[in-house]
């Protein structure tokens, strides 16, 4: 990329930053351009991105744009605060497109200051069931942008490793994956498979069991304290951070504080009444929980009514 086009790109990114501040999604051509920029960045990233503290980690967001603004007010804005987002940016909430756009624009502007990991909702199948597909159809009138996003999801890193000792991943462990090196050789550029190691990393949940159990979700596993401590020992980890499960209090430590679930979508699905949390690591062993609540109704803009095709 020559200097001229690079400065043009920078101008575009700054324009998009202004645009998304008002919860406005980008015109189709701009969004495609943004996707192209981000694809190039993701392509260079490892399956397990190495990160150095200080860094703040975040759990599921699920399209709650206004609450994501509250997250940044709570944790600080990039580039001053470095972030790892552990997936599930889209589905369920009304503003998946705007939420994803916000994160992608930050990523384009400061690629080294924000890491975006894949979650189980960053997938073709799941977004067609839980809303993001319908949202793209409604807001853009076609599925092109949804296809672009899915292509981008395929390229997202699977995990992040802070200071070589804190592993961040969306779901949890897999009986097929005993080492981080095994995570590094996954062919990640694909739709999340229905079973196997990659699938489990996106879908598994910790539980108060000894070893492994079938997950009621129908994908991934329930994993207990023993496989967790074994995995931590084998990979010389001090902590596993993951998201994927609603926690009423925003954050929940398990297994003698060796595993933590971070949940960053307050009042999930507009009904759960939960608090949200982010976890700021000053160093790998010194971390601080920051909590925040859903943004009140009067701070949200009311969209105009549009026509739903079935009712034309």
């Amino acid at each position: 990329m020559n200097e001229n086009s690079s400065s043009n790109t920078n101008g575009d990114i700054d324009r998009w930053l202004e645009w998304i501040k008002d919860c406005k999604y980008l015109p189709e051509t701009d969004f495609k351009q943004l996707c192209t920029i981000i694809s190039d960045i993701f392509f260079e990233e490892s399956n397990v991105q190495p990160i150095f503290s200080p860094v703040t980690i975040c759990g599921d967001l699920h399209g709650q744009y206004y609450d994501v603004q509250e997250l940044f007010r709570t944790g600080g804005y990039p580039p001053d605060t470095q972030y790892i987002f552990m997936g599930d940016f889209v589905d369920r909430g009304y503003y998946s497109l705007e939420t994803l756009t916000q994160l992608l624009v930050f990523k384009a502007k400061w690629p080294d200051r924000i890491t975006l990991l894949r979650g189980n909702h960053e997938s073709r199948q799941v977004t067609q069931v839980y809303g993001f597909y319908d949202e793209c159809m409604k807001k853009y009138g076609n599925a092109n942008l949804w296809r672009f996003c899915c292509r981008l999801f395929d390229l997202m890193p699977i995990g992040a490793l802070i200071d070589n000792e804190v592993l961040c991943i969306h779901g949890g462990l897999s009986p097929d994956i005993g080492t981080i090196d095994q995570m590094r050789i996954i062919e990640r550029d694909q739709e999340i498979p229905h079973r196997g190691g990659f699938c489990d990393l996106m879908w598994s949940d910790p539980d108060d069991i000894d070893w492994w159990a079938i997950s009621p979700r129908g994908a991934g596993w329930l994993f207990g304290e023993k496989p967790t401590s074994q995995f931590m020992h084998n990979n010389q980890l001090s902590l596993i951070c993951r998201a994927h499960q609603l926690v009423q209090e925003g954050i929940k430590f398990m297994f003698d504080e060796h595993l933590v679930t971070v949940w960053s979508a307050p009042n999930y699905c507009y009904r759960c009444g939960n608090i949200a949390a982010i976890l700021a690591f000053h160093t790998a062993t010194n971390h601080e929980t920051k909590l925040f609540n859903a943004v009140p109704d009067n701070q949200r803009v009311i969209p105009s009514k549009t026509t739903t095709p079935y009712f034309l």
Partner: peptide, 25 residues
């Protein structure tokens, strides 16, 4: 059971409240 603005958590119901007649709805 839901909190937050109706136009966000029930956007389809919000949109179709714009339909003029019950028969159409």
């Amino acid at each position: 059971v839901k909190t937050g603005p109706f136009f966000e958590h029930s956007s389809t119901l919000y949109d179709i409240s714009n339909v003029a007649h019950w028969s159409k709805l």
